[in-house]
Nucleic acid binder design. Structure first.
Ligand SMILES: [Mn+2]
Ligand SMILES: [Mn+2]
Ligand SMILES: [Zn+2]
Ligand SMILES: [Zn+2]
Lengths: 138, 138
DNA sequence: ACCTAAATGCGAAAGATTCTCATTTCTATA
DNA sequence: TATAGAAATGAGAATCTTTCGCATTTAGGT
């Protein structure tokens, strides 16, 4: 909810960065590819180079402003880091994405890392299925 | 452990397919990219086109002979489907991969899908961390 | 206002995967 | 066992996403 300032995270407040951040904050779609961001900006008349979109999103990720996901394996999906950590459940028919947090899973993951002798950095959990809407349509 | 026959899964028993399957069965490395498989076959004197490796691995996946993973987001990793379902914990330093099964997590995932109104097809869970070996080295 | 490092935009390049299509190989059937 | 036809292969072109190189522009401290 609290929009962090670019300078706070050590990034110069350039026009492209401000446009991209503003777009992420105001978009009602939470999960977007770099291409999605690029096209959306173009359509709203904001000109930002595609390479810059990629660069800036990566910088935002490093700065903790956005999270990167690999929902399908091919391209990266970004989302503004404005809420708690959460995992995702995705509809394989329509692409819908829902978010969830499960403390049981979180703690089991930590336990597994411990059991295996790993220090845990991060994790990715994706559940794939068919959402209720798509189940009815078929 | 039981090596299924190609014809059993509806695939013609061609030389390239037999070579790839045999390689997967005999390799001591369990998780490999298409490129890995291609190069390993080349080195052992078996000539199989790269495009064929990609095609065959995808066919094997459809047939249930192999599983495909997206460990890092970019390229696909394949493994022979000879054991129970399991998830993975990966070392971000050395690339080591360990496998685990956790019934608690499995059932929580099913519960979450139910709660969200999804019919669950599949899931992917990757834990990233630093393995015990790499922790000591640093 | 000026200077310099940092950032941008463009197109080229990269890496992974798929596609095209001429040629080869299975396999069912005669 | 010979043969026809469908299916599969191999080689390279094409595609897709992402990164790179570099000339030009910009932010921000002096
Ligand atoms: Mn999310
Ligand atoms: Mn495995
Ligand atoms: Zn759906
Ligand atoms: Zn390690």
């Amino acid at each position: 909810m609290e929009s962090k300032d670019l300078k706070q995270v050590g990034l110069k407040a350039t026009i492209p960065r401000l446009k991209i951040l503003k777009f992420l904050e105001e978009s009602d779609v939470r999960h977007m590819s770099a291409e999605d961001v690029y096209k959306a900006l173009l359509e709203s008349g904001e000109e930002v180079g595609l390479a810059t979109v990629y660069r800036v999103l990566t910088q935002f990720e490093s700065a903790g402003l956005v999270a990167r996901h690999h929902f399908e394996g091919d391209h990266s999906i970004f989302e503004l880091n404005d809420s708690e950590h959460h995992d995702h459940i995705l509809c394989v028919k329509c692409g819908r994405v829902d978010e969830f947090v499960d403390e049981v899973i979180e703690s089991r993951q930590a336990a597994i890392a411990r059991e295996k002798g790993y220090s845990m950095d991060d994790h990715a959990l994706y559940i794939f299925g068919v959402c209720s809407d798509c189940q009815q349509k078929k």
